[in-house]
Amino acid sequence: MSTTASPQVTRRPGRTNATKQKLFEASMQLIGERGPAEVTVDEIAAAAGVSKGTVYYNFGSKNELISQLLEYGVSLLEERLTPDESKPSLEALESMLDQTLDFFEEYPSFSQLLISELWRTPSTWRDTLTMLRERLFLLAGNTMERVAQEHSVRSEIAPQAMVGLILGATLVTGLDRQVFHPEKTRQETLMALMTVMNGYLRD
């Protein structure tokens, strides 16, 4: 199979949010249907209503486009996960988990791509995903530290271990509900996640 080299262009450092949003939505729809390997730049550009040259001008290659869109998608999720410091820690954590499930509902294709690539070894976007994972863990970790300060918790379990457990459970149960059990309500899923969380508490 022959391959055609991507046009060698200098990527523009500033990209409008509107352009990124269009490319994000178009890419995630196509990738959700067929997977990243089967989607071409031409299809992404057409679905987003921009020229192929615009995609290359902004991103340089399809791999870089997807890398940037993964980061953009996580930044959208981060906005929802920014904790409300005025709330008690458990309420803040529950709100973060609820917002994650809400994000899954709004961007199902992105969620599937994010989860599949996080656990794929090796992944083309491994470095990007590692950085994005750390950003999400930092947000959740700060709230988990507040939980440990405000409540009596199991001291034999480090707060960071709970971060991996609760975030992992949220990702897996959110995807399971999305793909296999759409009849389950978000509230039911959230209650199950908080039941796991309550096992960390001693009070």
Results as ranks from 00 to 15, higher is better:
residue 71 E to P: 04
residue 112 Q to E: 12
residue 143 T to Q: 09
residue 192 A to T: 13
residue 201 L to I: 07
residue 136 L to A: 06
residue 52 K to D: 06
residue 201 L to Q: 02
residue 83 P to I: 06
residue 197 M to N: 09
residue 188 E to T: 13
residue 34 R to V: 07
residue 8 Q to P: 08
residue 70 L to E: 04
residue 8 Q to R: 14
residue 11 R to T: 14
residue 63 N to G: 13
residue 5 A to I: 10
residue 96 M to F: 08
residue 146 R to C: 02
residue 115 I to S: 09
residue 154 R to I: 10
residue 68 Q to S: 14
residue 38 E to P: 01
residue 121 T to Q: 11
residue 153 V to I: 10
residue 53 G to Y: 09
residue 90 L to A: 06
residue 67 S to W: 07
residue 193 L to D: 03
residue 188 E to Y: 13
residue 165 L to P: 00
residue 8 Q to W: 11
residue 20 K to D: 11
residue 29 Q to D: 10
residue 68 Q to D: 10
residue 58 N to A: 03
residue 168 G to C: 06
residue 18 A to H: 11
residue 62 K to W: 03
residue 23 L to H: 02
residue 45 A to T: 07
residue 200 Y to S: 14
residue 156 E to D: 14
residue 133 R to S: 13
residue 71 E to R: 12
residue 121 T to G: 01
residue 13 P to M: 01
residue 182 P to S: 05
residue 104 F to T: 15
residue 172 V to S: 11
residue 123 S to K: 07
residue 146 R to W: 02
residue 19 T to Y: 06
residue 85 E to T: 09
residue 55 V to T: 08
residue 126 R to G: 09
residue 119 W to G: 06
residue 100 T to F: 15
residue 59 F to Y: 15
residue 160 Q to T: 12
residue 133 R to M: 08
residue 176 D to K: 10
residue 174 G to H: 03
residue 49 G to E: 02
residue 157 I to V: 15
residue 66 I to T: 05
residue 177 R to K: 10
residue 46 A to D: 12
residue 169 A to D: 05
residue 64 E to V: 10
residue 34 R to Y: 03
residue 136 L to Q: 11
residue 67 S to P: 04
residue 138 L to I: 12
residue 78 E to G: 07
residue 186 R to D: 04
residue 123 S to V: 00
residue 90 L to T: 08
residue 28 M to Y: 04
residue 7 P to T: 03
residue 80 R to T: 08
residue 129 L to N: 00
residue 165 L to M: 14
residue 39 V to K: 01
residue 177 R to M: 00
residue 156 E to G: 04
residue 140 A to E: 00
residue 118 L to V: 12
residue 96 M to K: 08
residue 88 P to A: 05
residue 55 V to W: 07
residue 59 F to A: 00
residue 147 V to R: 02
residue 119 W to Q: 07
residue 183 E to D: 10
residue 200 Y to C: 13
residue 129 L to G: 06
residue 65 L to R: 01
residue 75 S to M: 10
residue 155 S to G: 10
residue 3 T to F: 14
residue 63 N to C: 00
residue 203 D to P: 05
residue 44 I to Y: 04
residue 26 A to T: 03
residue 147 V to N: 04
residue 99 Q to D: 14
residue 147 V to H: 01
residue 91 E to K: 02
residue 36 P to C: 01
residue 107 Y to V: 07
residue 24 F to I: 01
residue 173 T to D: 06
residue 53 G to W: 09
residue 199 G to A: 12
residue 165 L to R: 11
residue 80 R to V: 00
residue 76 L to C: 10
residue 13 P to I: 02
residue 42 D to I: 12
residue 30 L to Q: 00
residue 2 S to L: 13
residue 171 L to G: 07
residue 29 Q to W: 06
residue 143 T to F: 04
residue 150 E to F: 07
residue 21 Q to A: 09
residue 97 L to Y: 03
residue 197 M to I: 13
residue 48 A to C: 02
residue 159 P to Y: 03
residue 67 S to T: 14
residue 121 T to K: 11
residue 113 L to N: 03
residue 184 K to N: 14
residue 147 V to D: 00
residue 57 Y to K: 11
residue 90 L to H: 01
residue 167 L to A: 08
residue 65 L to S: 07
residue 170 T to Y: 03
residue 105 E to P: 00
residue 73 G to T: 02
residue 150 E to W: 06
residue 29 Q to T: 09
residue 148 A to S: 14
residue 26 A to S: 00
residue 104 F to W: 15
residue 192 A to M: 12
residue 141 G to H: 01
